[in-house]
């Protein structure tokens, strides 16, 4: 089987967020870049599929050279080769264009069976690229798959389970298809030391953004970068919800104990009823 994985790099959102002086972007100076956590699930699912059915796993990543670190991590986990679509100054290219560009490169790779992607990037949180790549490729997609139940390369189909509000569905989808991965579908493996050593020797193809044939993709010459974006970020604010911070504690130690327990319950209910008016 030929299995493709779209892997993106993201800012570690554990970090403190600071708006840049221009007011319309996040200051990334000093921020840590990591593999997008959902893409780790995608890589793991791809490797498990390869382990069951044989074949190869190809990583595709768009971005500047810092993404090489993430690509190497995926290769060290067990992927076989990678394609980097390299562009340094197109940070705010919209998802629509990213989808077209990735789709265009995939078409050049020849036949494939499955594309795995994350459900969204945890910094921008657009949640569109995967599904839009499927559209560009003209193949079906199943989004937010909680479990890949079966992949049948000979019968050219896959069976997946997906959580929906109020239940879950099991769907059968013909191959080739694209699957987007949410949380908790598997446990991504760590890269082993031998894996890390081997990753260095695995094939990497670099495609320069300047060499992309935008016209062929149906994109305008300005499509890459902020100017061509269909949607632009004009301002970013950091939400500041003032919380009341009314915390009921015990008198001797922080925890309420003994009689204080009943009293604290009563006090909380009073606050919720009279001050917050929510019960």
């Amino acid at each position: 089987m030929k299995i493709l994985v779209l892997v993106s790099q993201t800012q570690d959102t554990e970090a403190k967020i600071q708006v840049s002086s221009s007011g319309d972007s996040i200051d990334t100076g000093g921020m840590k870049w990591i593999m997008n956590p959902y893409d780790e699930f995608a890589v793991e699912e791809a490797i498990q599929t390869k382990e069951k059915h044989g074949g190869e796993v190809v990583i595709i990543s768009v971005g500047p050279d810092r993404v090489l670190e993430t690509i190497r991590q995926a290769l060290a986990m067990g992927a076989d080769s990678a394609v980097q679509i390299k562009g340094d100054s197109f940070a705010e290219t919209d998802s629509f264009t990213v989808g077209k560009v990735i789709g265009g490169e995939i078409k050049k790779l020849g036949d494939f069976d499955i594309v795995f992607t994350g459900m969204k990037i945890i910094d921008e949180e657009s949640g569109q690229v995967g599904v839009q790549v499927a559209e560009e490729l003209g193949i079906p997609h199943v989004s937010l798959v909680s479990k890949v139940i079966q992949v049948d390369p000979a019968g050219k189909k896959a069976v997946c389970q997906k959580e929906i509000d109020g239940g879950h569905v099991t769907v059968e989808v013909p191959l080739p298809c694209l699957i987007t991965c949410p949380d908790a579908m598997n446990e991504p493996r760590y890269a082993s030391l031998p894996g890390i050593m081997k990753a260095k020797k695995k094939p990497l193809t670099v495609v320069n953004a300047e060499d992309l044939n935008l016209e062929e993709l149906g994109l305008s010459a300005q499509a890459l970068g902020k100017e061509g974006a269909r949607v632009k970020t004009t301002q970013i604010k950091v939400p500041e919800i003032e919380r009341k911070l009314t915390i009921i504690k015990g008198s001797d130690e922080p925890m309420v104990k003994g009689e204080e327990v009943e009293r604290s319950a009563e006090e909380l209910i009073k606050l919720l009823r009279e001050e917050a008016k929510v019960i």
Binding site: T13, E125, A229, K232, T233, I236, K237, V238, P239
Partner: peptide
């Protein structure tokens, strides 16, 4: 919301 809900971008369509 973006960045794990730590930021709120305003986005304007072209």
């Amino acid at each position: 919301f973006s960045h794990s809900s730590k930021a709120i971008p305003t986005q304007v369509f072209h």
